[in-house]
Amino acid sequence: MTSVLVVGASGILAPAASALVKRGAEVTGISRRGHSPAGVNGLHVDAHDLPALDLALGAARWTAAIVYEPAVTALSLPRIAAAVDGRVVLVRTSAAADPAHGIEPRLAPDVLLLGWVDDGVSTRWHSPQEVSDAALEVLADGRPRILGTVRPWERRP
């Protein structure tokens, strides 16, 4: 059986956690909110707190993970990745594509970069369902993706 760790399971990645449960995966969700979608084993811990995260993860192992980048730190992400035997999908916000960084966004495998929806008249952020669907696609094939658009930056919602 596939076991998947989802960081952000009670927020933007809740639809992904629920979809994985429906597909028969054993899903563990890390959440600061104290609740998880139905069928998700909840680990209620702040992934920014490395000692607390380390205690919560213990010696557990997962076959894959989906991680919402704002929910982790530069220290906690490697700890999460060390508990996963397969793919770790990193869901990054549009801030990673900010032109102030001086370069066009480069995507590594297993990365989903969140942009925005731009219909030419208005812009909006993607819904949790749209983000989750794209994250599950990256989980399936490892190909990096930009969800929506990240240019022109001035059109960012």
Rank of each mutant, 00 (worst) to 15 (best):
A56R: 05
A14K: 01
V131L: 01
L112W: 11
L114E: 05
A96L: 13
V89F: 13
S76R: 06
P105L: 01
D49F: 04
L13M: 04
D110I: 05
T93M: 12
P78A: 05
A56G: 11
P15L: 00
L139G: 01
S94W: 10
Q129I: 08
H48C: 06
V4M: 01
A19F: 01
D85W: 09
G120Y: 15
G86V: 09
L113P: 07
I30M: 07
L43K: 10
R106E: 14
G86P: 09
V88A: 08
A25V: 11
D118E: 12
P152E: 10
W116F: 09
Y68D: 02
H126S: 06
P15H: 01
D54W: 07
A38C: 04
P70M: 08
A19W: 01
D118R: 08
A59Y: 07
G39R: 00
E69I: 06
T93R: 10
V7Y: 13
S10H: 01
R79W: 03
I66K: 00
H101T: 06
E130V: 03
R106F: 14
T73V: 13
A16S: 10
P105E: 15
A71W: 04
G142H: 09
T63F: 04
A14N: 00
S10F: 00
A56K: 12
P15E: 00
T73K: 04
P152S: 08
R23L: 08
T149Q: 13
E69A: 13
S10V: 00
I66M: 01
D49S: 06
H126C: 07
T93N: 09
V6K: 01
P157T: 13
R124L: 06
S94V: 09
G34N: 11
D46K: 03
H44D: 05
L20Q: 02
I103Q: 14
M1C: 06
V84W: 13
D54R: 14
A60P: 11
V21D: 06
V89I: 09
L75Y: 11
H35F: 12
M1E: 15
R151I: 03
V21N: 08
V117Y: 14
V84H: 09
D133M: 02
T28F: 00
R156E: 04
R156F: 15
R151P: 05
